[in-house]
């Protein structure tokens, strides 16, 4: 990969759910180390955008490239790509029948072929990094939502991803748990992780994003550094969206 070339490129990406045109000619480039926060009203296509990047949702047309290579179709090549793109879900989706530690080591052992001891040592480091090291042998259901989401982040990090996708990571959390997750994400951003974050947390967007992308009706309407986007949004839709968020 040539220096300065983008890690992720999306070109004229289109996606339909039946009659609904959820992504309309979406273009987006993300550089290595960049943190992009995608904001917009419900149904604007943010989550779908996020899910097309590791092909949990296939696209109808357009191209998505990671490190210059188009996403593979189903099969082993796609599995390999997904192992390099971490994903954190709104509903955490920890493996319900496995302990916290086994959640984090499953990928490294089965996909990367690491030994159990090596995977566990690294998993404990990561669990310590996200502050849940003393929960390693519990089942996910025994943890709070905030703890579960931090384990989910550790599980994604265990694969040493090139890119981390966050699909509304704090939307299912009680208010007092949101910050413990956002703090972990801020640390990751500061450590240089490339991240695409779908979020309603404007405070996080202000403090951690390099760029804020505003979506509405399946299109990207604006993309600007956070200080610029929040101070002077260019489109009426973005102004309207921000006024509704700030007014409560």
């Amino acid at each position: 990969m040539a220096a300065g070339s983008p890690l992720l490129q999306m070109e004229r990406v289109n996606k339909h759910f039946g009659d609904l045109h959820v992504l309309q000619d979406v273009d987006l480039e993300v550089d290595p180390g960049e943190v992009v926060v995608v904001v917009g009203p419900s149904g604007s296509g943010k989550s779908t955008l996020c899910r097309t990047i590791n092909r949990l949702e296939p696209i109808d047309d357009g191209v998505i490239r990671l490190e210059g290579r188009p996403l593979p179709d189903e099969g082993r090549a796609l599995a390999r790509l997904r192992s390099d793109v971490g994903m954190v879900f709104q509903q955490f989706n920890l493996f319900a029948h496995k302990s916290v530690l086994d959640n984090v080591t499953l990928g490294p052992i089965k996909v990367r072929g690491q030994s159990r001891s090596e995977a566990e040592r690294r998993a404990r480091e990561l669990l310590a990094r996200v502050g849940v090291e003393n929960q390693a042998h519990k089942l996910p259901a025994q943890l709070s939502g905030g703890q579960q989401q931090r384990v989910a982040i550790a599980r994604a990090l265990a694969m040493d991803p090139k890119l981390l996708l966050f699909d509304e990571p704090t939307s299912a959390l009680d208010p007092e748990m949101i910050n413990e997750v956002l703090d972990v994400m801020r640390d990751l951003a500061a450590a240089g992780m490339t991240m695409i974050v779908i979020s309603h947390e404007m405070g996080f967007a202000r403090s951690a994003a390099n760029r804020v992308v505003f979506m509405d009706g399946g299109r990207i309407l604006e993309a600007a550094p956070p200080e610029e986007f929040f101070a002077s949004p260019r489109t009426e839709r973005a102004k309207d969206f921000l006024s509704k968020i700030i007014s409560h």
Binding site: L81, R82, G86, N93, G107, A156, M159
Partner: peptide, 17 residues
Amino acid sequence: GVGQAEAARSIGLTFTQ
């Protein structure tokens, strides 16, 4: 839940795995 399979695939497990 469909999320379990999505999470499994998103860490790079194949369909069979």
